[in-house]
């Protein structure tokens, strides 16, 4: 009974609050990350030489440095040059840039997998380069990149727990506070783990639905 009251009065409200903060972190980061990823991915293939080099450099740096270190740079490092971000903004910025770099990798692969004939056909119909990329190539490439990008979004859900380390109190942070007050570490963190499992499972179901919905007959991505 006592356990139940503890869950009802303390755990549930705290986790609900943390859950909302987590969602507020994940959704903008996923969207911004995808946008950054598409931009960088396109620049890596169709940009001129210096742009391509810069985009490649961006990806090497943001994929090579651990996300924790990136978050620390944004939150604890930037005040060194006089820029103060609040934890939430720093977390969203860090997540977006990092997952953008990963997304760009999948999008680059998908862009490369589009057959050259599509491009030649668009050119022969008089499309400009920008128009060709956005109306012909990208819609096909994005469908192919979707499984990879979906994986990346699921990673993002899990890595959103790192926001706790730069003092943005989301699900994990709420759990840590609860657990250190009551010393019920095992119970609380199992519950938090269950929350994340639900989030990642639901996200993967939604992403599969989206993938099915966007499928074009005759242009299916053949899974190997």
């Amino acid at each position: 009974m006592e356990e139940w009251l503890y869950i009802q009065n303390e755990v549930y409200p705290a986790l609900l609050k943390g859950f909302w903060v987590s969602l507020q972190l994940i959704i903008p980061s996923a969207l911004c990350g995808l946008a950054i990823g598409i931009m960088i991915g396109v620049l890596r293939i169709y940009g001129n030489r210096p742009v391509m080099a810069a985009a490649n450099g961006f990806v090497v740096v943001f994929r090579g440095i651990p996300l924790v270190v990136q978050l620390f740079i944004w939150y604890f490092g930037l005040p060194y040059i006089g820029i103060y971000l609040n934890p939430f903004v720093a977390a969203v910025l860090g997540f977006s840039l990092c997952s953008g770099a990963y997304h760009s990798e999948y999008i680059r692969g998908a862009l490369l997998s589009i057959k050259r004939g599509q491009m030649l056909a668009a050119q022969s119909l008089g499309f400009s380069k920008v128009r060709m990329i956005f109306s012909i190539i990208l819609p096909q490439a994005l469908r192919r990149a979707l499984p990879g990008c979906g994986n990346e979004i699921i990673y993002l859900i899990k890595y959103s727990s790192l926001a706790y380390m730069i003092t943005c109190i989301e699900l994990t942070g709420q759990g840590k506070i609860l657990a250190s007050n009551s010393f019920k570490y095992t119970e609380v963190f199992l519950m938090i783990g269950a929350c994340y499992l639900v989030m990642t499972s639901v996200a993967s179901i939604i992403l599969n639905r989206v993938e099915d919905r966007l499928r074009l007959p005759g242009f299916e991505h053949h899974r190997i």
């Binding site: 959103s160 727990s161 706790y164 657990a179 783990g193």
Partner: peptide, 13 residues
């Protein structure tokens, strides 16, 4: 489940 949650679960829990 995120790594951070597992670390806390195993180490403290």
């Amino acid at each position: 489940i995120p790594l951070l949650v597992f670390l806390f679960l195993f180490y403290f829990g």
